[in-house]
Write a protein that binds this DNA or RNA. Structure first.
Ligand code: FES
Ligand code: FES
Lengths: 154, 154
DNA sequence: TATAATTCAGACTCTTTTATCTTTAATTTA
DNA sequence: TAAATTAAAGATAAAAGAGTCTGAATTATA
């Protein structure tokens, strides 16, 4: 997998929170967990990291939860990916050779670097504002990942 | 990482064997291990799997080792990737949602599926024959991955 | 036939990722 | 102030991936 589970959960949760904009101040983690069918405690850890990376704000107590720390148009998908998976996942040679570059390319370099640039570009330019609009219009989905398993800790 | 370590080692080893074409019949795994700085026992397991998938032939005893089971132009990188990482790594939604497709795309579907097609296409069309030629001409490299660590089991 | 070279096979360890559970601290509301 | 709600923090467990080790089986060759 390109992205870790931690990262995909973090992206989905952030997108979900973005769609809740205006409905309330903070979104409880427990509700995100239930809506997206992600383990509550696992999700808590992920959102903690997003909080320390200044992507989310959190608040305890009744009516607490998490909210976006910045306006949605100032948060790109890449921000979230870097916070959770680090900024090294797109670096380096796909074959593990040291020093990926044109001077000493590996057999896959040409095709890989081309794809990689496309991915990086789209992840960097895609921000939460435009995406949450499309989600709200029903053009994109962020759920439907129910795997039939029941989790105890929702 | 897109490809597992098992898979990258398998690709490098196969490319190395392809460049040895003509020099000898079978290439000993121990020599591949030394040349590419990959743990001998780990590599042995990887090549066993390539043997059962009919990508390699193996031979025991003195002058034994592995060789390509088919001519290099009949083995694509995708053959090796599928044998080692399975054919599911390019399937499915990058966000883990069920049923990746145009009818119910996730927010990343557009950019991801585009890059994915490029990668799949290049891995499928790239075969060992053309690559080993370029490696032998010094245009592409498959080694240089020495990480400074000394492995005990070369 | 003895010996050395080599793959084959399985069990085992170590590390990282993923997930769960429990306790603590902060906050609101009544 | 008491009770309810919620995130924070930490300990632990389960699963998968990566790597190691030992011994057995096979083969060429002297
Ligand atoms: S050198 Fe291998 S991907 Fe660039
Ligand atoms: S639906 Fe997510 S990548 Fe296709």
């Amino acid at each position: 997998m390109l992205l870790s589970k931690t990262c995909t959960y973090g992206l989905l949760a952030t997108l979900f929170v973005a769609t809740q904009k205006g409905k309330r101040d903070y979104v409880p983690i427990r509700e995100i967990s239930r809506q997206l069918n992600i383990s509550f405690h696992f999700l808590t850890k992920i959102l903690q990291r997003l909080t320390t990376h200044n992507i989310m704000n959190s608040h305890r107590g009744p009516n607490g939860g998490v909210r976006l720390a910045r306006t949605p148009d100032q948060i790109s998908l890449m921000d979230i990916i870097e916070a959770l998976d680090g900024n090294k996942i797109f670096e380096g040679c796909v074959l593990g050779l040291p020093g990926c570059g044109e001077t000493a390319p590996c057999p896959l370099h040409q095709s890989w670097s081309q794809s990689r640039d496309i991915i990086i570009h789209s992840f960097t330019t895609a921000n939460l504002a435009t995406m949450s609009h499309e989600i709200q219009k029903g053009m994109l989905r962020i759920s439907g990942m129910d795997d039939g398993l029941t989790r105890k800790d929702h």
